[in-house]
Amino acid sequence: MIKNSSLITEKVKDFSLQNIENIHGFFMNFQNRYSGDNCLLDVEFIIKDKEKQWISCFRFYNPNRIHFESGGIYHQLSLQIYDISDRGWENKKYEVIDYEDDTLHFYCTDIEVISVREIL
């Protein structure tokens, strides 16, 4: 489901989405590629392990219907990602939500971990 998730599992052995505690950064950019326009959403999440913390950047491809609410610099969440490809919706393969407070919700075509770094 999530490409390059091994970047996280190499550092956090029993990684699950419940290890994600909050959002560190939220960046959207648009790119004009050879075959058309693309939108990318990069979200940096704080991941907690037993003794360490990590910042992991997840890239969401072609996000749409983005709903994001934040009350300040600390945005706690309970992340869940659903594979909805069986619904056959155009440009909507995954649904990403904050299942407790509903402060984050969007759809995307692909998900990739692009970096993981330890917080010192």
Rank of each mutant, 00 (worst) to 15 (best):
L40K: 00
N64R: 09
H75W: 03
K50L: 15
L17W: 03
D83Q: 02
I73Q: 05
C39I: 15
K50V: 12
E69I: 07
K52L: 07
F58E: 06
G36Q: 04
E51Q: 15
S35C: 03
L104C: 06
D86R: 09
S85H: 00
V43D: 12
E51I: 04
I47G: 01
L41D: 07
K48V: 04
I84V: 12
E95R: 06
Q76K: 08
M28C: 11
G72L: 07
S6Y: 09
K52A: 14
Q31K: 13
N32H: 08
L79A: 03
F26C: 00
D42F: 03
D42I: 03
S6D: 15
I8R: 09
K93A: 06
N38L: 09
S56F: 10
N22R: 12
F68C: 00
E51K: 14
L40W: 06
I20L: 10
W54L: 15
K92P: 00
G72K: 01
E21C: 04
I97V: 13
L40V: 15
S56V: 13
I81C: 06
I20S: 09
D86Q: 14
G72H: 00
K11V: 03
R65T: 09
Y34W: 03
E90W: 10
N4C: 09
F60P: 01
Y82H: 08
S78V: 01
C57Y: 07
L79Q: 01
L40S: 02
S6F: 10
F60V: 01
I46N: 10
F60R: 01
C57L: 15
D98R: 02
V12R: 07
P63V: 02
L7F: 15
F15V: 04
H75D: 10
D83G: 02
H24F: 11
F15G: 09
S5M: 14
F27S: 12
F68Q: 00
R87S: 02
R59G: 03
Q31P: 00
K11G: 04
G71K: 07
H75T: 06
T9Q: 09
E69G: 04
K52S: 14
N4F: 07
Y34D: 10
Q53H: 06
E10L: 15
F27K: 14
N64D: 13
F68N: 01
N4H: 14
F26I: 02
D37H: 08
H105S: 15
N91E: 14
N29H: 13
I73H: 05
K93C: 05
G72M: 11
N62Y: 05
E10Y: 05
N22K: 12
N64Y: 04
S16P: 05
